[in-house]
Amino acid sequence: MMSEFKFKKFTINQDNCAMKIGTDGILLGSWTRLDHHPFSILDIGAGTGVLSLMMAQRSQAGMIDAIEIDDNAYEQCVDNFEQAPWSDRLFCYHASLLEFADEIEDTYDLIICNPPFYSEDYKSDNKQRDLARFQDAMPFEHLVACVSKLLSEKGVFSVIIPFKEEAGFVDLALKHKLFQNRTLHVKGNTNSDIKRSLMEFSFTKKPLVTETLIIETSRHRYTQEYINLTNDFYLNM
């Protein structure tokens, strides 16, 4: 696994992060809607800081905050922010989501999150990776409750989760008056099952727009739709 990941306009160091750059994060950072011109953005569970950096590249947001609980990931995120062309707009807090939500009185026009997924009982021998990866480090209930507190009245919440968790997540969001506005179902190839759900929520009820994205036609042969979506970031697309 390479310790440095080069994008078109910034570079991510990830040698001290348990969770490396992956397709999920790139998809979410590329798909998230910015046409409401957010001034303030929050990246929950920032890891390397890749989502914050993608938002900085794509938007004119004046304040992009990130929160990261893991010591090593936090330090790496701060370093990646300092090296970025948009360092003056980026700040990372070393805190848990619950701590942050309790202390911060500001609200955000966009909240973006690529949360830990795995709710299975399996644990590995790498505690740092487990913390980054497993849902019990940031239960969906905590995530949705904190988002509903931190999101501005006309703000947008953008998240990626396993498809099998979608219905339960939508129900949780509704309990906090967050409505599902857009959904992108992601399939690895034409014949595979839906693997991921990218979802956008807001406090405004709108007709739900649902689309499907297929990543590859065959191994390492990407669909034009995937290339078009991620083209601003990947060097070799």
Rank of each mutant, 00 (worst) to 15 (best):
T23N: 04
E153H: 10
E153R: 05
E141T: 14
S192Y: 08
G22K: 04
T212L: 06
L42K: 00
L90D: 07
I194H: 10
G62N: 12
K177H: 15
I215K: 01
E141K: 03
M1H: 11
S202F: 11
G29N: 11
H176N: 14
E82P: 00
C17M: 06
F10H: 03
D130F: 05
Y74I: 05
D102W: 07
L110N: 05
V156Q: 12
S124V: 09
N80A: 11
Q60E: 15
N13C: 06
I12F: 07
I111C: 03
S202H: 07
Q60F: 10
T107G: 09
N126W: 11
S3A: 13
S119R: 09
Y222S: 04
E200M: 12
G22F: 12
L51V: 09
D102L: 06
F201T: 04
D79E: 15
K20R: 12
S52H: 02
T190L: 12
G29I: 09
I161R: 02
D79V: 02
M55F: 05
L151H: 08
Y226I: 03
I214L: 05
F7V: 05
G47Q: 08
Q180P: 03
L184A: 04
N181I: 11
M199E: 06
K8G: 10
Y226E: 10
L174S: 08
G168L: 03
A84Q: 02
T230G: 03
L150M: 12
P207D: 15
T183L: 12
N191P: 03
I67T: 08
R129D: 13
Q128G: 03
C113F: 02
L97Q: 05
N72D: 15
E165V: 02
I44N: 04
T230Y: 11
E103V: 02
K6D: 14
Y118I: 09
I112S: 03
N191I: 04
I104R: 00
Y226L: 06
D79F: 13
K195L: 13
